[in-house]
Design a protein around this nucleic acid. Structure first.
Lengths: 126, 126
DNA sequence: GATCGCATACTAATAAATTAGTACGAAAGG
DNA sequence: CCTTTCGTACTAATTTATTAGTATGCGATC
């Protein structure tokens, strides 16, 4: 199972974000957290967490009465591969045009740019 | 019709890329182009181009026997809003972390970074 | 020990995305 | 004119995504 993991759908990502946030979570905890943002059924959350486990994004472990889930990969890694996929899909794999869009599209303000400059400098030395 | 256009699905984006490339295209032209990359039926392409027209991404005009389609918006604009959406979905709207991912994730090589530095400098002055 | 609360397993309804088939008309070629 | 070609319109099968219901079990409480 050297999983080239199936990709996360929109809703699945929402769940993953919550679990990453909580680090470890039961269905109920995720459910409660999501309820704060939108109407959703407990069983919906459960179904999706099961799917996420099948897809290899979550691991579950029995604990007392309920399962406790935890991410099987750090958020950074997963998001990184989502970025890679997006770049492939939209920009045919080349990241530079994405940058141009970000800079030109007012997605980034002056503070961001300063941050980036620093990051680049640091990175460029290594 | 102040269209907050429905978003493009994966396959629809493939079609749009071809049409942007050709600037103006019939179903057959798009079909031929796509055939070079993968097996697909003529009618599939037609169906999708109809959907794209309904969604407001393509305009058609009768010309001789077949319709001629053209993009109703420039590629840059559409892609920009896809980027915005992605940033919203994955990074809760803040673009800076995306940058960090790009830089750290070996998506960008040294030449890219130089390019970006220039872009940023230019942009920062305005 | 019957009932309530909470958990899971299993099932399923609905919607959206993807792919394509069939019918049919116009025109082009013989 | 009849057949082939190419085009559209309309229909639809299949898959994937999204959302949730129902059945059922277990432990705590009255």
């Amino acid at each position: 199972m050297r999983s080239p993991k199936p990709t996360l759908t929109e809703q699945e990502l929402e769940i993953m974000k919550v679990v990453w946030q909580l680090e470890t979570a039961t269905v109920r905890q995720v459910y409660e957290t999501m309820l704060a943002h939108r109407r959703i059924a407990y069983t919906t959350v459960m179904t999706m967490m099961n799917i996420l486990e099948q897809k290899g994004y979550l691991k579950k472990r029995q604990d007392d009465r309920a399962y406790v889930y935890r991410p099987s990969q750090p958020q950074k890694l997963v998001i990184r591969s989502m970025v890679r996929e997006f770049v492939n899909r939209v920009f045919n794999g080349s990241a530079e045009p994405l940058l141009v869009h970000l800079v030109e599209g007012q997605h980034l303000d002056a503070k961001d740019l300063e941050e980036i400059r620093k990051t680049i400098r640091k990175d460029a030395k290594s």
